[in-house]
Nucleic acid binder design. Structure first.
Length: 582
RNA sequence: CGGGGCGUAGCGCAGUCUGGCUUAGCGCGCCUGCCUUGGGAGCAGGAGGUCGCCAGUUCAAAUCUGGCCGCCCCGACCA
């Protein structure tokens, strides 16, 4: 492609609308332009990269034995009602009405639709297993789209779904996808972590996130510096009865005392006011479950992990109670809750359960709310001042905790971009939508499902977040929009034009993707744009042609910055050997 | 949805506090011509703006007031 025939609007300055690095560079290099918050136009260069990524995804999915399909983006609401997810997803789903007034959804994901399809068409164990995938636009009415294409309202997803006759089959399908995902991200040149994760709204029991570390990421994960264990903090168990840093060695139990704390309701405010550390305080969080209210006790500096709590009490969702309920349960104002006296109000072991995080067990003489406005207790102690129903691991892991896998205290909390997520679903959807098969004995059984998603647009943003310098993007060969860019220093010069043209045609004849910057503009502009675009090989045709020994052109490698001069007669072969085998 | 910020030419911004001194500016980009060609050249000429929208205050509004819309950031939320 000749630059003068293309449409590559580059910008000298950072756009005001962009904050994250990949977002700025994608706009500056002419890959994308915003249409509205959370929707983007892909320009020719961006589309080329997108297609490169899609091709890699498709090759690897096909290679894994999965079959490509294409499902509608427009969904009837009924299957979503059947699985309960119309309600669970809530406002995330775009809802539109057709001319007859019937509700339609824009698909945010396709478990329901694919399960319905398979349920109608597959009925025998002989037809299983099967893995179907598609590469298609998804719609999600995000609360806050951000970071350009990293979180947008409309995005391209590769979503795959496996159907098996038993758990063993699911395990095999899951491994296949796991491996295919690794190959896809490897080929795209991304660094990524594979993280044990919580299935969340998808349901099921077991999932892994593929996350690219980046400051523009919204996902937190923990990583062990010793054994490489990675997990979502919401998922990581804390295999320890307490945290040694909070031990109060041998201190005798001091007498319980109340103290006025006017308007000091947060841990931070009380900590300052009473001059005690948050680690010496216990916070009491009143939570609502389908079966009743729970008071959860946590050390002041810890955070409640709702997912763990939900699993503990076998509830689908656990939420914080509202202010009125809290006042009813504790008899005091919100922000001044505490465990002391709860027994009289239905605590152990009446209808209000008290659950203490393990770390609270080792605490002595701590501070809690007094269930009275503007009042706290000092020197509170378990068993002496109140009883608990049970202790458990219900908090979010911190960097100070031991690794769940190796036990060493070398955890780091990192941020990353979630590139892909794979789930073992089980029978949640097949049961709800009646996707069953007959086994060899003629017994009717629900199919065992897995689902697997990749954010295709996020691969592009992540690749840039992974690889750039102060001058622009540095593409890896496999997803670069072009392999080679030819800069003609002065296209009006006859010799330069002829040599450039011949090289351009020769490269094309050899199926090498080449962009020829044939613009009549000053050399600096072309060098800057070439760096900004990040094309791996930059070939400059200019004064090197006057070399005494014979005409030469210059090659610069974008990633290393290394330069070399090559004779005009050898340059085609030279470039071919660099570009092949990518 | 709560908090904060922004909206002036294709892009980046000044002007708004203190209404009139502007025919609404600057840099980049764009168009024409000349010139130049190894790291965002130079000279000359030129095009391009309902100052987000609506209403109000005023002799007078980019500037003050009210409402609305859009965009960005933080939070909550989210596969």
């Amino acid at each position: 492609m000749k630059w003068t025939n293309s449409f590559i609007p580059t910008l000298k300055e950072d756009p005001a609308e962009a904050e994250s690095l990949s977002h700025k560079l994608m706009i500056r290099a002419g890959l994308i332009r915003k249409l509205s918050a959370g929707t983007y136009n892909y320009l020719p260069l961006g589309t080329r990269v997108l297609n490169k990524v899609i091709n890699i995804v498709r090759e690897e999915m096909d290679g894994s034995g999965s079959l490509e399909v294409l499902l509608p983006a427009l969904h009837p609401p009924e299957p979503w009602e059947q699985t309960g997810r119309l309600k669970d997803f809530g406002d995330i789903i775009f809802k539109i009405k057709d001319r007859s007034g019937k509700l339609n959804l824009l698909g945010p994901t396709h478990e329901e639709i694919i399960t319905l399809l398979v349920s109608n068409e597959i009925s025998s164990y002989r037809q299983l297993p099967v893995i179907l995938y598609q590469i298609q636009t998804k719609f999600r009415d995000e609360i806050r789209p951000r970071f350009g294409v990293i979180r947008s309202k409309e995005f391209i997803m590769m979503d795959a779904y496996s159907f098996d006759i038993d758990e063993e089959g699911l395990e095999k399908s899951y491994r296949k996808m796991y491996k295919a995902y690794c190959r896809i991200f490897d080929r795209c040149g991304l660094s990524y972590h594979i993280i044990e994760a919580d299935p969340g709204l998808m349901g099921g029991k077991g999932s892994h996130e593929f996350t690219c570390p980046s400051p523009a990421g919204e996902d937190l994960f923990i990583k062990c510096g010793n054994c490489n264990y990675s997990a979502n903090p919401n998922f990581a168990p804390i295999n320890e009865f307490g945290d040694k840093s909070s031990e109060t060695p041998n201190s005798s139990l001091k007498p319980l005392k109340d103290i006025l704390t006017p308007d000091k309701s947060s841990i931070e405010a009380v900590s300052k006011f009473l001059n005690v550390q948050p680690t010496e305080m216990v916070k009491t969080m009143v939570c609502r479950t389908p079966t009743g209210q729970i008071a959860v006790l946590l050390r002041g500096d810890h955070e409640l992990n709702f997912a763990k709590l939900a699993r503990l009490v076998s509830a689908p969702v656990v939420e914080l109670s509202d202010e009125k309920t809290i006042e009813k349960v504790t008899g005091g104002a919100m922000g001044f809750s505490g465990p002391v006296g709860l027994s009289a109000r239905g605590g152990p072991t009446g209808n209000i359960k008290i659950i203490a995080d393990y770390s609270v067990l080792e605490m002595k003489n701590f501070v809690t709310g007094a269930n009275k406005k503007d009042m706290h207790f000092l020197n509170v102690n378990i068993n002496r001042d109140f009883k608990i129903d049970r202790s458990a691991d219900v908090r979010i892991i911190t960097e100070q905790d031991p690794c769940p896998s190796c036990g060493k205290r070398m955890l780091k909390i990192m941020t990353g971009i979630e590139l892909g997520h794979i789930f073992k679903l089980g029978t949640k959807y097949s049961e709800a939508l009646n996707a069953c098969f007959l086994d060899e004995k003629g017994k009717r059984l629900p199919m065992i499902m897995g689902c697997y998603g990749i954010g295709v647009n996020r691969i592009i943003a992540s690749a840039i977040e992974n690889s750039y310098d102060e001058n622009g993007i540095i593409w890896t060969n496999s997803i670069a929009p072009y392999q080679v860019i030819i800069i003609s220093i002065n296209p009006a010069d006859k010799r330069i034009r002829e040599v450039s043209e011949k090289l351009y045609q020769d490269l094309r004849a050899n199926s090498i993707e080449v962009l020829w910057d044939d613009r009549d503009t000053s050399p600096g502009v072309k060098f800057k744009d070439a760096d900004l675009l990040g094309i791996p090989l930059i070939v400059t045709v200019g004064k090197g042609l006057k070399d005494k020994v014979g005409g030469k052109v210059d090659i610069k490698y974008r990633s290393s910055g290394k330069k070399e001069s090559i004779g005009v007669d050898k340059v085609l072969e030279h470039i071919s050997s660099r570009v092949q085998g990518v």
